[in-house]
Design a protein around this nucleic acid. Sequence first.
DNA 1: AGATGTGAAAAAGTTCACAGCG
DNA 2: CGCTGTGAACTTTTTCACATCT
Lengths: 275, 275
Amino acid sequence: MATGRTHRPATRSRGIPEATVARLPLYLRALTALSERSVPTVSSEELAAAAGVNSAKLRKDFSYLGSYGTRGVGYDVEYLVYQISRELGLTQDWPVVIVGIGNLGAALANYGGFASRGFRVAALIDADPAMAGKPVAGIPVQHTDDLEKIIEDNGVSIGVIATPAGAAQQVCDRLVAAGVTSILNFAPTVLSVPDGVDVRKVDLSIELQILAFHEQRKAGEPTAAAHGVAGAPAAPTAPAAAAAASAPAAPAAAAATPGSRKGRPEGDVPAVMPA
Amino acid sequence: MATGRTHRPATRSRGIPEATVARLPLYLRALTALSERSVPTVSSEELAAAAGVNSAKLRKDFSYLGSYGTRGVGYDVEYLVYQISRELGLTQDWPVVIVGIGNLGAALANYGGFASRGFRVAALIDADPAMAGKPVAGIPVQHTDDLEKIIEDNGVSIGVIATPAGAAQQVCDRLVAAGVTSILNFAPTVLSVPDGVDVRKVDLSIELQILAFHEQRKAGEPTAAAHGVAGAPAAPTAPAAAAAASAPAAPAAAAATPGSRKGRPEGDVPAVMPA
DNA sequence: AGATGTGAAAAAGTTCACAGCG
DNA sequence: CGCTGTGAACTTTTTCACATCT
């Protein structure tokens, strides 16, 4: 098959910048909270603080939606809630299916934030026959065999994949073939999909690794955090000196010599020498 | 105080760009897979495909780490695995605590990808006394009262918050006070932390909303939807549509000239008007 | 006065395209 | 040759600062 493009939809942003779209839900959440407290209006400054961004950015973001504020006053909370909801397409109901009802899938099914916005869990699907019929979060799990029918019957266009990595691509292909055009992927795999299908991924492990990167940099600062960093482990004087965590089935060592390294951005130099 | 959160915790001097750091885990995953298949070397093209990015970007990313490839050949898999692991700080062990052992917290505790890299679940913490001692994923849940002691005893610097939104900030404050300097937040709330503390958030609801935005655009786009799908992917279900407007989504027909466009986007005019 | 909305500048990130090394 | 490494061009995003409107 055509190894799909993993490209992002090339943002034909004649409209709202992608970065702005990604923040709208944040604003919406802050606004909803204000709305519940019956706050009538907010300034960009206040709202920005509540959403955790700076006010110039917020104003710029809103400017892409239109002029919804009142100079000298601020923004009308209810009105903005409506406008942003509409812009995000939340004024309509989005039926969603969750495929892979393991620990994570079940947790997602139980997640309240799901329904609180325009999303409705239309069905839960799992490949394990033993789960079929068993209710999770009040919804009976259905078998993968019926995936296509479920998608069609419910007019689902958004699918959530919470299967093991190995099954993700296959499930993805079936979802797409059945008409799903947006996928939220929790499996630690890169999914390839045809153009026109959006994929967003959530990967716990990746997030932690990013944090670790920054955490590592902190070691060596006046700010404590002196966890046995024990300095960089003896620099790998050889290419395949991999002694890291896991290194399964790796004869390694005898590998080639990726020799000559040039200038690295700066110090730290891991004494890598060509043979 | 209102310490604006993540300003740019990134390396103060010129270091690795944040965008690159965010992709390193992706490359690492692809490389690890290759390593397990005992593939000795990869070209930027192949690796890029496996990681779902384009090759120029990958090469540029690697260039920030140093010159680890061999012209005319490619990259030595094992060597690169080691280098990236080291760069990400994964050659050391990171004890992590998960606070809030509900559906999600439990799922996270059971998540395998956790341990597969340098992360180790050092403790599970929950505010419910009834959960104390109960084992989840083989680890006994401890009570929130002991949070500080747990953090210190285990030298934890990374915390995962999976509590309800209402408890998140408080838990965050305690974690930070106890010495945690990196937080992965699953609660749908903006956390405020002092400088020097990194926060990353994972919000299911936000991801879905972003998908909904794009999904909405698709309904009504003459875009090449010819991804060989039988049956019309049916327009996004029954438009439960809120009160307002009978006005169909903006007809993206006219290519709108990007110019002095004031006012709101065409065709909206909601029934809801600010007072 | 007090806040929005927005050009313009700056910064960050991506892509191009090719020199140059193996 | 083939493929990396990278300056340069280009695009997107953020920030500044102030004209503009209520």
